[in-house]
Amino acid sequence: MSVCTLQINERDVAVPTGTTLLEAARQASIPIPTLCFLEGLSAVAACRLCLVEVRGADGREEPRLLAACVTTAAEGMRVQTHTPRLQDIRRTVIELLFTEGNHVCAICVANGHCELQNLAVEVGMDHSRLPYRFPERHVDLSHAQFGLDHNRCILCTRCVRVCDEVEGAHVWDVGWRGEHCQIISGLGEPWGAVEACTHCGKCVDVCPTGALFHKADTSEEKHSHPERLQALVHARSHQEWSP
């Protein structure tokens, strides 16, 4: 196995060729915030939180902002993960997410276990510098066991990907475009009316916020379970189980 060496925050790191910058940083115990990324699913680089400054890629000396989740480590790269510029981008991104939806933590099923909430704390967002938009969004409670509250959806598309790539049912997709984007099921029908759904609950397990939830959950009761997906993906690809 060939290895490449690079610097992350002035530390030398050696990783197998083909490793992403995100994996390389995590192996070196350097945390990079992520939201749309989830191990076990394809990476889409949509949330932009994992942007890092890279020098020395393709022989370029000026720093480039690249998404760590999809950028492959290369020999001689010099990576910075927490410059003031990056910190400001991350805070702005979190503010943009909070202001485009209706996130009311106090009454949310995911309060205390929400990745968006945790990130807001991590980036130091005590208030939003941008105005809240208070969009009108609806809640789909048509499914027997689960609910979808579009007010809390951040369009990370983890549900779309897990249903397509792991469950294979492709119940979900993204509909419309731009600020009107929303997660849709079937032909834009209520979730409960979509026959393709196997009721497996994987989408609920991977949702980073309280957008997808078990109907039985009340505030603060929803816990995500991305590890279930990761165990499943590992078992499938390696034929190894951890019972």
Binding site: V44, A45, A46, C47, R48, I89, T92, V93, L96, L97, T99, E100, I154, L155, V174, W176, R177, G178, E179, H180, C181
Partner: peptide
């Protein structure tokens, strides 16, 4: 609408 900086 894919990435948040542009969408929002």
């Amino acid at each position: 609408g894919k990435c948040i900086p542009c969408r929002s």
